[in-house]
Write a protein that binds this DNA or RNA. Structure first.
Lengths: 311, 311
DNA sequence: CTGAAAGCGCTTACAG
DNA sequence: CTGAAAGCGCTTACAG
């Protein structure tokens, strides 16, 4: 039905084997033949059957990626950039909605490896690493799991943000994170940096808790006026929603209360946030993957430092 | 290396052929054998090699999807829901960053077909339809291209939004859409419904143009005060940014100016928008695809009506 | 530098 | 209901 390597070989007047070699570029082929094959391929509009190639080499140039929540534009932007960067090394991306499917594809599709974003189960990480190259992006628990990881180091950004807030007399800090609410405490989260800086000054988080939704933050503010004048939010989307509600209630942002998002995808006027460069992350991830896949080792952790934004 | 159908067959004491049949479920196999094969597969932890299967059947149960901008949470949410729905029919999704790659995979990976989101080149649509099932989601130009399409009919939502705005004495309407700016005029866009309703009342768009960025909208408002009191925006992200800037300038939203987004992913307090149900779209897309792929025809267009949101 | 042969793991007629 | 044979399109030793 569609044109195969056999057709190209016949048209070029060579064996199917040398035609194959031409496309794989490894072994040397007489230049004249090489040209003939390329010409034939072009005129026939040949494009290799990836299934057959994958089966023969038991290796498909596809990366399976696992990424929690595409609904957040930060992850969307990361996905777009990953696609762009991995394309440079001629990998396709396949985005999976579960970690098990991601790993399964490595076997069933002989996919080349995986990119895991914000994943934390150590046993799983260790297991997969045994058979396929994996790079993590802000995965936790990778130290011992021995996979190359891109770490986001929020320390400087959050410390600066905190200090600037305090400098503006905004030292009643609240934390708003539906996600973190599931965990015992701030330690282990990016907010730990704000938290320790606060502790050093003898301060404690407003309400002595992590708020799980923006309405909780606002009712707390209304119950005890003056109790909160700065809110660190999990991401920009949530910060923007909180921002909208505060304005509606008559608060001025950032004059009355500072709203600090995270990721830089949607920094409303008056908001503060942290810029995370997804293009840079993606480029580094592709690089780490290639090193890992080709040179074997390279289980180094690469650190990227997000930067504060004031608007 | 990994366990294959041959291993399963041997362990179950049947030929490789009947083992294959058991997994494909089409032809009948003696129940006793069937059980043996399943047991063997389970104990060996067998999972079929999709490459081999794909090569043999020249059909992989993977859908390639093309979707412009994942950075917009609307598309992210759509992607997530598509993955969920297509999984029900045991298709994997592969998200491509270019239309050509999307189509190319149908051949090179023997992918089962494609889902195209907001795509408009008729020739391309026609071409691909010849060989593979495709369903479009709010694709334009599909009428003659003859592919099943999910159409978003904004008429009721936008008409209602417009009327409610007018009812609140907000009849100086502006359109803000970086995207549309590239096109000659409002016709063919979702804003056409607002535009025609305006025309009927003898009104014209503020500035007689489509604004390409939010700063342009704002400076227009400042140059001629009272010239704009309602802005229709391309999507929620853009509307939210405009909203933030307006607040900062001292405008009250929606008292001074109504800001109307679109998609429902981020409706800030005070904003209006249009809710687009991505879960419903995805479910319908999967259904249309299955019908199309299995029953052949069904090139019907299915219409979904987004609904207005006031906040 | 080149080609004949075997094989990747599965499925699909075809005969029994 | 079951199995031996051929084949999907490519690559990888192996011999020349």
């Amino acid at each position: 039905m569609s044109v195969t390597l056999r057709d190209v070989a016949k048209k070029a007047g060579v064996s199917i084997v040398t035609a194959s070699r031409v496309f794989n570029g490894k072994e040397s082929v007489k230049p004249a033949f090489k040209k003939k094959v390329f010409d034939a391929a072009k005129s026939l509009n040949y494009t290799p059957n990836l299934l057959a190639r994958g089966l023969a080499k038991s290796n498909l140039k596809i990366i399976s990626v696992y990424m929690g929540e595409l609904e957040n534009p930060y992850f969307g932007s990361l996905a777009t950039n990953l696609a762009k960067e991995f394309t440079k090394y001629s990998y396709e991306l396949i985005i999976c909605d579960s970690i098990s499917k991601t790993l399964e594809l490595n076997r069933s599709l002989a996919t080349s490896g995986s990119v895991l974003v914000s994943f934390g189960k150590k046993e799983v990480l260790e297991k997969i690493t045994e058979t396929h190259p994996v790079v993590g992006i802000s995965c936790t628990m990778t130290d011992n799991a021995n996979i190359p990881n891109i770490d986001l180091d929020f320390k400087d950004a959050y410390t600066e943000l905190y200090e600037r807030a305090v400098y503006s007399d905004k030292d009643k800090i609240a934390f708003y994170s539906p996600l973190l609410r599931q965990y015992p405490h701030l330690s282990g989260s990016k907010f730990i940096h704000v938290y320790s800086a606060m502790k050093r000054k003898g301060h404690t988080p407003a309400g002595d808790q992590i708020f799980a939704d923006d309405d909780a933050v606002i009712s707390f503010m209304e119950l005890s006026p003056g109790s909160i004048n700065c809110v660190f939010c999990e991401n920009d989307m949530q910060a923007a929603r909180l921002h909208g509600k505060l304005i509606k209630k008559g608060y001025k942002v950032p004059e009355d209360v500072i709203v600090i998002g995270c990721d830089g995808t949607l920094v409303l006027d008056g908001m503060w946030s942290v810029k995370i460069d997804t293009a840079k992350i993606a480029a580094k991830a592709a690089e780490l993957f290639r090193d890992h896949a080709i040179n074997g080792a390279s289980n180094g952790t690469h650190t990227i430092k997000p930067e504060p934004i004031y608007k």
